[in-house]
Nucleic acid binder design. Structure first.
Lengths: 254, 254
DNA sequence: AATGACCGTTCCTTATATGGAACGTTGTTT
DNA sequence: AAACAACGTTCCATATAAGGAACGGTCATT
């Protein structure tokens, strides 16, 4: 299903592959290693990398190529395409109800959630959300919340492709059927729960940010330790999360 | 001085140009507009954009192409290439001396500073630093601090290319000569000052984070309003900024 | 010292990605 | 209603980027 269309602009595709490969490397990589990993001729990789260095996207040092700061422009532009992130920060700065919890903002990309921002609490959580980080949507609170508000067809298409036999923890929702049953609960209460499905002992409550058409554009969630997440607390905090998501939805423009 | 080397992998270069162009647009752009702006044939731009959509880097909607969240991977990887950002956050969370000020972390890229992180204060500053944001190094506090610690040749090369006739404010350092005189002061006191050179009424104090070889890898700065920046306060806070930068330098690895 | 493995880089042929021109649509102007 | 302009898309000859092979250099191993 990958290259059925006739290959156009292979250099552009390889540019992406090279940047992706460098993203998952902790050290600079040489031409040969990159070429091997992305399955392309050395000389082609060499030409592209030199072009990217000239463009200021990559740095070259003695031991190979590495990412440059140029790509921060692109992500900054992406995060600023709407007022979502700035409104998220503003509302958390003003509304003190979630002050002692870690709060995240994320959006859905296929079967993953992408974290757009994170306001850490002073209390340690044992888990760090980073901007740009991706997690399986089906196990995360915001992912569950957003998946609950897309059309049944879309959700079915996404869930059908999930590899259910690679759970994150013993608590991870086990299959499509259980997820569909949960969806009814999340919709009814207006927020979704991840009870240790991403990380053992971490509980997250997520709510969707819906556009005027009722479709999710993003989601917010709060994270806490299992010890903090007593049921009555969950209900109270879940309601707050849902309310804040609704306020964000109203302020959200374009 | 741009395309003296023989053009290799034009599609890779155009990929960068397209992403850059979309970064500076508030709305999606069509093939024709992009092609006009980056001075490339429509059909080539079309091929590259379709490839980038297939790669998940761009989104396509009715009114044109726009950036996708894929590029967040690259910037997240860039920010995590060292422990700099995480140590910056940790030290600010523990050390309360700068709690009521906006503190930024940035690095030098040619003649610009690139902001890597920002810890906003509760007090409004009237200026927002965003990750990935770029400012002229010569006018910014961290830029001044870092430029003070590179070799004289390197600094001379960078400063010679600065367009001094496009100052940000009336306070912006006016020329190469004045900057060189300031460098001696910044080096002597261990921190640099931007007194309204980026924005009228905003004062920033910056210090370099030096590697074991004594070369700057990044810089930190605190920002405050002119009213807050009385001289004795500047001296006190400048010393704190310098000390924190030194602690960061010690913790900084790889 | 000699061998071998692997590196980054260059070369040159050829397969092919490119891009000018043409196409069908759409929306605006005359 | 007709003419026009600008759009996204397709087409095809050809300029040219790609990539297999060869090169010189470095480092381990024998």
């Amino acid at each position: 299903m990958s290259t059925q269309v006739k290959r156009r602009a292979p250099a552009a595709q390889r540019t992406v592959l090279i940047l992706d490969r460098l993203s998952t490397s902790s050290k600079p990589l040489g031409v040969s290693e990159i070429a091997r990993d992305i399955d392309a001729p050395k000389s082609s990789v060499y030409g592209i990398c030199e072009t990217l260095v000239a463009a200021g996207v990559l740095h070259f040092e003695a031991d190979g190529y590495s990412l440059g700061s140029h790509c921060l422009r692109w992500s900054a532009a992406y995060l600023n395409r709407s007022s979502l992130v700035s409104e998220f920060r503003r509302i958390l700065a003003v509304d003190g109800r979630l002050a002692s919890y870690t709060v995240t903002l994320s959006e859905l990309d296929k079967d993953q959630v992408v974290y757009l921002d994170c306001r850490n609490s002073d209390k340690p959580l044992g888990f760090t959300f980073q901007v740009g980080m991706r997690l399986p949507a089906v196990y995360s609170a915001t992912g569950k919340a957003m998946l609950s508000y897309i059309s049944d067809e879309e959700r079915h298409e996404i869930l059908s492709a999930v590899l259910w036999d690679a759970p994150f923890t013993a608590n991870s929702v086990p299959n499509h059927k259980k997820f569909d049953a949960d969806v009814k609960v999340w919709r009814a209460q207006g927020y979704a729960v991840d009870n240790g499905e991403i990380r053992e002992g971490m509980v997250c409550l997520g709510a969707p940010i819906l556009n005027p058409q009722g479709l999710p554009v993003a989601g917010i969630a709060i994270s806490m330790t299992g010890a903090e997440a007593r049921l009555e607390i969950q209900k109270e905090l879940g309601t707050i999360v849902r309310d804040i998501a609704n306020v964000l939805a109203q302020r959200y423009t374009s």
